[in-house]
Design a protein around this nucleic acid. Structure first.
Lengths: 198, 198, 198, 198
DNA sequence: ACCATCGGGACCTCCCGTTGGT
DNA sequence: ACCAACGGGAGGTCCCGATGGT
């Protein structure tokens, strides 16, 4: 049975397999070449769909980027929440959180690079960024609790949230650059150490 | 006193050269609209020169960006070195360094935004980035000394360098977002505190 | 009485068929945005059908326009013929004709605009235009009779036919522009006066 | 001497010969194929300029159309004013005006077709249409005088202005269609006769 | 009868950069 | 040093229409 036939047969079931296919190709191209250096024609070509199909799912190029950003952020937040456990002590939860974060980074190098690269992108609207940010409410709560319990220094919540993100970004960069010989656990420990009261 | 020297000193207020005029306009447009969203035609128009003139000074668009990046990085590094004092103890020098950093951020909001936004840009060549990086050798030395003296934790130099940058970026974000009520000094103290041994 | 007949009679108020629905929407969009500026996607969207359905009824976009043109022309000609009366003297018939024309314009502003706008359209084939033109044979006969009877000046039939149309268009424009305070009857009288021998 | 060289030499003097060249080509294509059916690529090709040059003079396609419309309308109005003579009696002036109109039509068949075809175009902005309309103030004055002097029927100015235009359009159509055997003078006489009091 | 999904093409836009001349 | 005029190309948009299933 030819592959094309098979695809036709499963067309209905793999609803928007096409869409995911496009997103995946876009992810690879965006991180390899950059957003502006990647023509939509290339995306559609490598995703084996026509430009028409691409337009059907994403009326414009920016939307591909934004959808990608959002889906990756959601995936990350979902993972973090899965690893979290309400019943554990805050400090443990904080640690788990960072650890899961690094694990995810380790398991999703491409997506990590994407987040790193497009965090500052002017092509992602404030709305989308906010929406992505809201996904991490749980983490916010953990940090809040940690401050309350004196695990983190008595500084504004905003300060800690930004620092968590910064340190994560820093760890990402280190891992990516391959310049460090520290193990993941050592990195987590070092990162956590910077955040904690002392 | 030669005219050139005088101009150098009063550079900030007296941007008269066509080239500087173009760079200034480009800075504003790039941070407001992004690099790709800013046509050279707009730059030349707002700088009151023709397209021909713009390309007389900058053979291509990327070079505008790179020149801008390099000049700003150099300006920052120069400022930091001016504030530094070899004779002081390392801890004091480290503190001064961060403090100067934040001061500069505070005094140069646009340039700060620029650095923040184009740090990851694919349009700035590795060469230029390296050249800019090399400008900060002095800081590298200070960090090395600090590790050696046990002021900073015993972790690889790379780790600390990245973390310094990360924390600076974080402080930038905080200041820019206007979400914090902490004073600059408090921010520096908090940032330094994260870096130090404990 | 068959259902189809009933629908025909109450066509104006009870546009229920998908096809009529599409035509109605198309009419509104075409006069508001123009033919080329109106994508089929918009038509199908506003008609609450899918693109597929639209192309089920109209093999291509031009046919929508042509169907619209033809149906409106026929509607107009039908109305004029209904008001006409063979037994009346020619002059009276001519007057009635113009009067009916203006009445119809008044009662069908959108369709009037449509005719006005697409009279010169290159997207309506000669065939369709001829077919529409042939619908007005009765009027041609009236004009011919009027020339014969000396009611209209002794000029070629073509001249009069074009002039009738021109004057009707002029009256349309006047009514539409809202710049005139003349009543419909006054307009008709003035228009007729221009056509008559003197 | 090759033609290309010659063109290069006279480049300076034939300032915007390029622009006129583009307009002329556009005129021919628009009336032959319609506005939407004429790609800009074809215009630039037939005008022997690059797409870049075309964009340099006309930032978008609509502007070509509007410029064309305006320039033709101005040309017509200029011609009419040249033929007009303040010192002659109003009736004579009115006659001259129509006569000149028909003459111009006769001498400029392409431009006539253009005006006829794009009079209702949605691609010409109200602003441009108004600007073109204002060019014909002189004619407005003549009609006003004619009404005042009882040469034209006592109907609103607007009525007469529209009718003049309509009748001119009608005459255009007749001439174009080639269906009439009437001479230009006969047409003018017939047209004028319709307008005059009786 | 109706539709979700997809194909493929072409147009306008508009951008970067060059050139000849002053 | 400066510029008007121009070349050339490619990208995103988005449209019309086809297809196969229900």
């Amino acid at each position: 049975m030819p592959a094309s036939k098979k695809i036709a047969l499963t067309k209905k079931t793999q609803i928007s397999g096409t869409k995911d296919q496009i997103l995946e190709v876009a992810l690879n191209l965006f991180i390899a070449q950059g957003f502006h250096a990647t023509p939509t024609s290339q995306i559609s070509k490598e995703a084996n769909v026509s430009t028409g199909t691409l337009f059907y799912y994403f009326p414009n190029k920016n939307l591909i980027l934004e959808q990608l950003y959002l889906s990756i952020k959601k995936e990350l937040s979902t993972y973090l929440q899965q690893q979290d456990n309400f019943n554990l002590p805050t400090k443990k939860r904080l640690f788990t959180c960072l650890k899961s974060y690094v694990e995810w980074i380790d398991a999703n190098p491409k997506k990590t690079v994407f987040l790193d690269q497009f965090y500052h992108s002017a092509n992602i609207s404030k709305t989308i960024k906010q929406e992505a940010y809201d996904e991490f409410d749980r983490m916010k709560e953990i940090v809040e609790a940690a401050i309350y319990e004196g695990i983190l220094k008595e500084l504004p919540l905003e300060f800690h949230l930004i620092m968590v993100e910064c340190i994560m970004n820093g760890l990402m960069s280190l891992v990516k650059s391959g310049k460090t010989k520290l193990s993941n656990d050592q990195l987590i420990a070092a990162g956590l150490d910077m955040l904690l009261k002392n």
